[in-house]
Amino acid sequence: MFKRLMMVALLVIAPLSAATAADQTNPYKLMDEAAQKTFDRLKNEQPQIRANPDYLRTIVDQELLPYVQVKYAGALVLGQYYKSATPAQREAYFAAFREYLKQAYGQALAMYHGQTYQIAPEQPLGDKTIVPIRVTIIDPNGRPPVRLDFQWRKNSQTGNWQAYDMIAEGVSMITTKQNEWGTLLRTKGIDGLTAQLKSISQQKITLEEKK
C-alpha cells in the first residue's frame, strides 16, 4: 500500500525546468507551479508516452532531478554507511541512485490517469530550513484521497528550496528505503546496493492501464 502511495505522490513532485522555475526561495510556489507544469506535460505528451513509456525517463531527467536534492536524499538512505564509504564508492552510488530515480519516478508518472491535487495554504517560513507541505491527491475514479507531506529543505548556501522526502501515513519514503535496503547494505555494503540500483534502473517502464 505504501509503495502505491509513494508512486501516486511522485506525480506531483516533478519540479519546473530552470527556464520557467518559480521563486526558488518559496517552496509553496515551487510546489504549486511544479504540480501544474507536471500535470500539463503528462496530459499533453501522452502520444509520446504511450508510444514509448521510457520517454518518461527524459521527462524526469529534464523536469524533476535538477530540483530534487538527489545527493542529500541518497546520503540519508545510506545512513551510517555513508561515512564509511570511499569517495569513489559515493560517486558510483550517487550515479546509480540518480539512474534509479529516473526509472522509479518514471514508473510513478506512468500512473497518471487524470488525477488532480490540492496544496495546503502557504504558511510563514520564518527562519525554518525544513518545511512540510501537505498535498491532497484526488483520484477521478473514486479512490479515497491521498494526503501527503512533502519535505522541502532550504539550501544554506543559495537560499533555494528543494524537495527531498515524502511522508505518507506517518511513514517517510527515506525511512522506507532504509528499511528495504538495510539488509543488503549490511551483507554486501554500498557496492552491493550500487549494483542492485544499476540493475533496477535497467527495467523498462510500463504503463498502468486505467481501472
Results as ranks from 00 to 15, higher is better:
3 K>M: 04
3 K>S: 03
4 R>C: 03
4 R>F: 00
7 M>I: 08
7 M>C: 14
8 V>C: 00
9 A>N: 00
9 A>Q: 01
10 L>S: 09
10 L>Y: 01
11 L>C: 14
15 P>Q: 00
15 P>R: 09
17 S>G: 10
17 S>I: 03
18 A>F: 01
20 T>L: 10
20 T>I: 10
21 A>H: 03
23 D>P: 05
23 D>H: 06
23 D>W: 03
24 Q>G: 09
28 Y>R: 06
29 K>L: 02
29 K>A: 09
30 L>Q: 05
30 L>P: 07
31 M>K: 13
31 M>Y: 03
31 M>D: 02
32 D>N: 15
32 D>C: 02
32 D>L: 07
33 E>W: 12
33 E>H: 04
33 E>Q: 15
33 E>M: 00
35 A>R: 10
35 A>I: 05
37 K>E: 02
37 K>W: 08
38 T>E: 12
40 D>S: 11
40 D>P: 10
41 R>T: 12
41 R>D: 09
42 L>M: 15
42 L>N: 08
42 L>A: 09
43 K>C: 00
44 N>Q: 14
44 N>W: 11
44 N>Y: 13
44 N>K: 00
44 N>M: 06
45 E>S: 08
45 E>F: 10
45 E>D: 12
45 E>N: 00
46 Q>G: 04
46 Q>S: 05
46 Q>Y: 01
47 P>K: 09
47 P>T: 04
47 P>Y: 01
49 I>H: 12
50 R>Y: 14
50 R>M: 02
51 A>M: 01
51 A>Y: 13
51 A>N: 07
51 A>E: 06
51 A>V: 14
52 N>M: 05
53 P>Q: 10
54 D>Q: 15
54 D>N: 00
55 Y>G: 08
55 Y>F: 02
56 L>D: 15
57 R>M: 08
57 R>E: 05
57 R>N: 00
58 T>I: 15
58 T>A: 07
59 I>S: 03
59 I>V: 11
59 I>D: 09
60 V>R: 06
61 D>E: 06
61 D>I: 14
63 E>R: 01
64 L>V: 10
64 L>K: 15
64 L>Y: 09
65 L>P: 07
65 L>T: 02
66 P>G: 08
66 P>V: 14
67 Y>E: 02
68 V>W: 08
68 V>L: 04
68 V>T: 05
69 Q>I: 14
69 Q>E: 13
69 Q>H: 02
70 V>I: 15
71 K>V: 04
72 Y>A: 05
72 Y>M: 14
74 G>L: 11
75 A>V: 07
75 A>Q: 00
76 L>F: 01
76 L>A: 14
76 L>P: 05
78 L>Y: 09
79 G>P: 07
80 Q>F: 14
81 Y>F: 11
81 Y>E: 01
82 Y>V: 12
84 S>H: 08
85 A>G: 08
85 A>C: 00
86 T>P: 02
86 T>D: 09
87 P>M: 01
87 P>T: 05
87 P>K: 05
89 Q>D: 03
89 Q>H: 01
89 Q>M: 14
90 R>H: 05
90 R>D: 06
91 E>L: 01
91 E>V: 10
92 A>M: 02
92 A>W: 06
92 A>P: 10
93 Y>K: 15
94 F>M: 00
94 F>H: 07
94 F>Q: 08
94 F>W: 00
95 A>M: 04
95 A>W: 12
95 A>P: 09
96 A>G: 03
97 F>D: 03
97 F>P: 04
100 Y>S: 03
102 K>E: 15
102 K>G: 06
103 Q>W: 13
103 Q>S: 14
103 Q>G: 07
103 Q>R: 09
104 A>V: 06
105 Y>D: 06
106 G>E: 00
106 G>V: 11
106 G>K: 04
108 A>S: 08
108 A>T: 10
108 A>P: 14
111 M>V: 12
111 M>F: 11
111 M>H: 08
112 Y>T: 05
112 Y>Q: 05
114 G>E: 02
115 Q>I: 01
115 Q>P: 09
115 Q>Y: 14
115 Q>S: 13
116 T>K: 07
119 I>L: 04
120 A>Y: 15
120 A>Q: 03
122 E>Q: 03
122 E>W: 10
122 E>M: 00
123 Q>A: 09
125 L>I: 08
127 D>V: 01
128 K>N: 08
128 K>G: 07
128 K>D: 09
129 T>K: 09
131 V>Y: 13
132 P>N: 10
132 P>M: 02
133 I>V: 14
133 I>R: 10
134 R>G: 07
135 V>I: 11
136 T>V: 05
137 I>F: 01
137 I>S: 10
137 I>A: 15
138 I>A: 10
138 I>G: 13
138 I>C: 01
139 D>I: 13
139 D>H: 05
139 D>Q: 15
139 D>E: 09
140 P>V: 11
141 N>L: 11
141 N>R: 10
142 G>C: 14
142 G>Y: 05
144 P>C: 08
145 P>F: 15
146 V>W: 04
147 R>E: 06
147 R>S: 05
149 D>K: 12
149 D>S: 07
150 F>C: 14
150 F>G: 05
151 Q>D: 07
151 Q>L: 02
152 W>K: 02
154 K>F: 13
154 K>L: 04
154 K>V: 08
155 N>I: 09
155 N>Q: 11
156 S>F: 14
156 S>P: 04
156 S>K: 11
157 Q>D: 11
158 T>G: 09
159 G>Y: 13
159 G>H: 03
160 N>C: 03
161 W>V: 10
161 W>L: 10
162 Q>N: 07
163 A>Q: 14
163 A>R: 05
164 Y>Q: 14
165 D>Q: 14
166 M>H: 05
166 M>F: 03
167 I>Y: 01
169 E>P: 10
169 E>D: 12
169 E>G: 07
172 S>C: 09
172 S>I: 10
172 S>G: 07
174 I>G: 07
174 I>D: 13
175 T>I: 02
175 T>H: 15
176 T>A: 13
177 K>C: 13
178 Q>D: 15
178 Q>N: 00
178 Q>I: 15
179 N>H: 15
179 N>M: 12
181 W>F: 15
182 G>Q: 10
183 T>Q: 15
183 T>M: 01
185 L>E: 03
186 R>F: 11
186 R>T: 13
187 T>M: 11
187 T>F: 13
187 T>A: 04
188 K>Q: 14
189 G>F: 05
190 I>Y: 13
190 I>M: 02
190 I>C: 11
191 D>N: 03
191 D>E: 01
191 D>T: 04
192 G>C: 04
194 T>L: 08
195 A>P: 07
196 Q>P: 10
197 L>G: 12
197 L>W: 12
198 K>I: 14
198 K>P: 08
198 K>A: 12
201 S>C: 07
202 Q>P: 12
202 Q>A: 13
203 Q>E: 06
203 Q>T: 12
205 I>R: 10
205 I>F: 14
205 I>G: 10
206 T>E: 04
207 L>T: 07
210 K>I: 10
210 K>F: 15
210 K>S: 13
211 K>S: 09
